[in-house]
Design a protein around this nucleic acid. Structure first.
Lengths: 330, 330
DNA sequence: GTGAAAGCGCTAACAC
DNA sequence: GTGTTAGCGCTTTCAC
């Protein structure tokens, strides 16, 4: 009952346990005849090595597992990032254990701790909690971490971020360049640094053009209401910059409902599927979640393989994609 | 160097190793005073249990890990399914190891085998290979499997499928009900049972209405070309049923390019984000990936917890969502 | 090139 | 209640 062990294989092949271990691990120093007998026994018994046991004894102590903690595995941004991480891990024989945080600090702590107890070789984390100081306590010493999408507080490690500030400034300048002067900013509540950076980029561009700012900072679900409120102003904006994809969708719906989608310009942060098939097609500043995942995974594997030195900050460029909604005249 | 072990805690607390084990595992039969000393030592040393070691010795042999093998972690359908699985696993203290198969049989075998070597407690698999017979060899005996999204061949286990045939029939009947008689089917190459079921549903509805069928079976990337070919027929269809979401997007683009998107009716299988903001808005037969993930995970955990009996087949209903593109008159 | 003995960190079984 | 002994399945060390 239960799987056969190395011992069973050794007995059947008439060799020592250690010889089986050598064959299974592909160490060259085994007589071909013995190796063949071992392999025959492995096949006959259906022997499969137990990775948990080998990891316990092995010197390098690698589980060949990394942990990936993102906001929501079901969200397209996280999904693409996840896939990119997997694509870096797979050729290295590493598997990905993942979890969704839903902006919940407790859940971050819980999952990061759980992955540490499982001896993940490293962690990629999109911080949800206000502070990551707990990592120093909970992680196995020497376990590398890479932060992605949001900067961390209280723990220093490599960090991969989108060019939020410059991307937001580019979006705003694009609208200014098309003649707009009353450009409203629709952003998430500035709880996260990402939201603050994007607002800052908007302000940079407005200030350098000598234009007054007009900002709405709301929870992500309140996009339609916030857009409606902006449109109801005495001097309503002629253009909107929506700094989160959920707010972009909210703005789209509100403009549609008011019949203003061909009159008011709109640029969104983050690309959306089908954005090119809307009428007018949606102009966006696209992030590159796959590039972020790739960069984060590469940085993590470099650290796992021993790279030393100061934490690095890696910025992934954004791309302005003009499609129509951002080129409407005021 | 390295983490402190239970032994270190025991020494520091002046108790036996077994007492530490009892405290750490929350067994009640420990003197409160001793337990307090142990907990103090745990805190002082920063002791964290090693799950791998405990799993090796434990009787239940649970790793509290399940494997999830889907087509592509970056795809919205897989992502939502993944998230639903995670939501069932999380309250049970179980973590999810995932991998993308990209319709590659070798990759399915490789990843399923790898997860088996890691002693995952169970596996949720969207089959990519033509045969799953290898599972009998590779899995730890008694490891339950649930197939999702596609039926398996050569291995019997619980299976969760969308109502592909009846959903496709409903889509086709919807178009027939709106007066269409020349309705073309745009489907993936019938390599997978899913594609065949949808085609069958289309045929069911066409036959029961006494209408001739018109089918294009193409790789998923060839949606625009296949649509263009259908539109170029001597008697072109007045309505399209696109049986995969990538083909739906291809059809949308082709219709748009020909300026026919307000003339030719279109129903897609699988919902798309922003589908309601297109003009005309896209009518779909929506699958419910979250319900599929939930059902698969629940079935898996029931088996892990010992449920016996014949494999079950669970069908998740589809929902027709009329939005405009499917209600265009011929 | 091969094998015997030790032990990774932990829990099971059973004594005390 | 608590401790002792054995050993999960494997790799390491070191002798042969």
């Amino acid at each position: 009952m239960g799987r056969p062990t190395m011992n069973d294989v050794a007995r059947r092949a008439g060799v020592s346990l250690k010889t089986v271990s050598r064959v299974v691990n592909g160490e060259a120093t085994v007589d071909p005849a013995l190796a063949a007998r071992v392999r025959a026994a492995v096949a006959a018994l259906g022997y499969r090595p137990n990775l948990g046991a080998s990891m316990l004894r092995r010197n390098d102590r690698r589980t060949r597992t990394i942990g990936l903690l993102l906001d929501d595995a079901g969200d397209p941004f996280s999904a693409l990032l996840h896939r990119a991480v997997e694509d870096e891990a797979h050729p290295r024989g590493v598997h990905v254990l993942s979890g969704s945080l839903d902006d919940d600090p407790d859940r971050e702590l819980e999952l990061a701790t759980a992955f540490a107890r499982r001896h993940a070789d490293g962690l990629i984390l999109a911080p949800a909690a206000p502070d990551q100081g707990y990592l120093a306590r909970e992680l196995q010493p020497g376990t590398p971490v890479v932060f992605v999408n949001r900067p961390a507080t209280g723990y220093r490690a490599d960090t991969v971020l989108a060019a939020n500030r410059s991307g937001a400034a580019a979006a705003t300048r694009h609208l200014i360049g098309h003649g707009h002067r009353r450009i409203a900013f629709l952003g998430a509540t500035p709880r996260f640094a990402t939201a603050r950076s994007r607002r800052q980029g908007y302000r940079d561009a407005m200030r350098e053009a000598g234009l007054p700012t007009c900002e709405a900072a709301v929870p992500e679900a309140r996009g339609p209401a916030a857009t409606a409120a902006l449109l109801a102003l005495a001097e309503p904006p002629t253009a909107l910059f929506a700094a989160e994809h959920r707010l972009t969708v909210g703005a789209l719906r509100a403009l549609r409902r008011e019949g203003l989608h061909r009159r008011i310009a709109l640029v969104g942060f983050d690309d959306l599927p089908l954005a090119d098939l809307l009428e007018p097609a949606l102009t966006v500043v696209a992030e590159d979640p796959a590039a972020m995942g790739r960069a984060a995974a590469r940085a993590l594997f470099e650290r796992i393989e021993g790279r030393a030195g100061e934490p690095r900050e890696i910025t992934i460029a954004t791309t302005l994609i003009p499609r129509g909604s951002g080129e409407l005249a005021p």
